[in-house]
Write a protein that binds this DNA or RNA. Structure first.
Length: 490
DNA sequence: TTAAGCACCTCACACGCACG
DNA sequence: CGTGCGTGTGAGGTGCTTAA
């Protein structure tokens, strides 16, 4: 009755499948609803100009009675009668049974045309397979995250392709840069978005970046960055990333450096770097999401004014959102992602984590990252230290770049401690920021105090302000960062 | 055209059985 | 004995059909 046998073009009866869910209006009128096929509003609601709301199912919420063992087998219900009759497609058990039918042509029914649902799944599988097959091609790669088994990966699951369904992270060819219209290009040019500054100022800003920004926000791989910079010059660096690095580094420029640069004031300089980067971001110039995340994290260094819509809070939110969209919050597991990429992704994720906690503390708001939704491995020294080759002379970098990478290596323990402190800070914030809950009991405060005390005891000696200098070559910036950690702790 | 009775479909859970 | 799979069954839901 419900599944009426309509007649197909070749004369065979075609079973009409029921919709898995009907809208409240169709449900009330007891008429066929196509909300699943066409989306809201369904055809009936559209025709009647009524609101199309989905009916909340109570299925599965009712506790079932225990079955009477004796009654089983003897009692023949209408359901069991219907099951004994001609099987509907819904009653065909999934998996091997269909394969068995396929292997025996004598008992296999005539092939049926795919249903609409099946057809759409096949088309999606094909589309995603093309992406996955493209992984083998050479050239720049960007991450693709297909989520959990109940999301896009479900499509692969439908296709019973276990090798695909077991992975969520992929590296796929980087999409081509969007073709800018002449007006857009002229606008970016007018803002100076492609300006690389004079050689002296650029080198000074990049040097400041790696000494003052990188130790507490190691979002780029210094070896990879300097190697590309040495080989391909400034043209090999993304304009968006470059302007963002300039912005972050300009906070640390000396008075003499500012005078030499020719900019009228520090504020003027920072505003221009920010406007250039923001213009590149708004025109969607950059297609590599990893590069986008690195850049927007740095844009968080723009403090702006009280009424600014795009302040640090905004940019950290964008960075966290983008990171989650490419799956940086999840461990890549068995995915074919090389170790160097995994390390970089981990660093970027923990940078997001640290900035999220830090901005939440500074602005007195709730943090965005729920630690329970993330299973990224803890950061280690190996993720932050470039060790290939025994000495910097083997690194295939020029002398200046090798010195930068060596200094970055020495800063590594600082960020490890910052991450540990951020994790405790998150717990402290969660215990304080409870608008709808009872204040945390004193016992929780004591536990957190103990955690902080334990962190201080276990603090890496290289990060302590009371530890004597290990070497006369220790950079001045190191001392500054040690004090920063102490302030963060207090 | 609309309202509603009711056949039967779908889902989730209980249970039995095979297998390691 | 534990685990996984297949099957039976109760409950909720859909929508065909018919009467008003």
């Amino acid at each position: 009755m419900a599944s009426t046998a309509a007649i197909s073009s070749d004369g065979r009866p075609v079973k009409k499948r029921r919709a898995p869910i009907a809208c409240t209006a169709c449900h009330a009128r007891k008429v066929r609803c196509n909300v699943v096929l066409v989306g809201q509003p369904c055809s009936n609601c559209q025709q009647d100009q009524t609101q199309c709301a989905l009916h909340v199912s109570a299925r599965g919420k009712h506790k079932r009675r225990k079955l009477n063992k004796d009654a089983r087998g003897r009692c023949v219900t209408p359901t069991s009668l219907s099951s004994a009759g001609p099987t509907t497609d819904a009653q065909v058990p999934p998996g091997p049974s269909t394969d068995l039918a396929d292997s025996n042509p004598s008992i296999s029914p005539a092939p049926e045309p795919p249903s609409r649902d099946e057809y759409e799944s096949r088309a999606n599988v094909e589309a995603y397979r093309n992406i996955v097959d493209a992984v083998e091609t050479s050239g720049a790669k960007v991450p693709l995250y297909v989520g959990e088994l109940q999301s896009l990966r479900f499509i692969f699951h439908v296709a019973r392709d276990k090798s695909i369904a077991s992975k969520a992270h992929y590296l796929v060819p980087q999409p081509k840069r969007r073709q800018l219209s002449p007006e857009e290009y002229a606008c970016l040019q007018a803002k100076g978005a492609f300006s690389t500054e004079s050689d002296d100022l650029r080198d000074e800003l990049l040097s400041l970046f790696f000494d003052y920004v990188y130790p507490i926000l190691p979002i780029v791989d210094p070896y990879d960055f300097r190697r590309r910079y040495d080989a391909g010059g400034v043209q090999s660096i993304s304009p968006l990333l470059l302007q963002s690095m300039f912005l972050a580094a300009s906070n640390f420029i000396s008075t003499e450096g500012l005078k030499r640069s020719g900019w009228p004031s520090l504020m003027h300089m920072k505003r221009r770097f920010y406007e250039r980067a923001k213009a590149l971001y708004d025109f969607e110039y950059e297609t590599d999401k990893i590069c986008l995340i690195q850049s927007v994290l740095l844009l968080g260094y723009w403090l702006g004014q009280a009424h600014d819509r795009t302040d640090s809070w905004h940019w950290v939110g964008v960075a966290v959102s983008l990171s989650q969209s490419v799956g940086l919050h999840r461990d890549p597991g068995f995915s074919d992602v090389p170790p160097s990429q995994r390390s970089l992704w981990r660093r970027i994720w923990w940078c997001c984590f640290y900035r999220d906690r830090c901005i939440a503390l500074g602005m007195g708001r709730a943090f965005r990252i729920n630690a329970e939704d993330c299973d990224v491995k803890e950061l280690t020294l190996e993720d932050l230290v470039y060790t290939a080759g025994t000495s910097s002379s083997n690194w295939n970098l020029n002398q200046e770049s090798a010195a930068v990478v060596a200094r970055c290596n020495s800063y590594a323990p600082l960020f490890l401690e910052i991450v540990k402190l951020s994790q405790i800070l998150g717990e402290v914030l969660a215990s304080v920021y409870r608008p709808l809950r009872e204040p945390s009991p004193w016992s929780v405060v004591e536990i957190l105090e103990e955690k902080l005390a334990r962190w201080q005891v276990a603090l890496d000696p290289r990060c302590r302000i009371d530890t004597p200098l290990t070497s006369l070559n220790e950079p001045m910036a190191m001392t500054l960062h040690k004090y920063y950690i102490q302030i963060l702790h207090q």
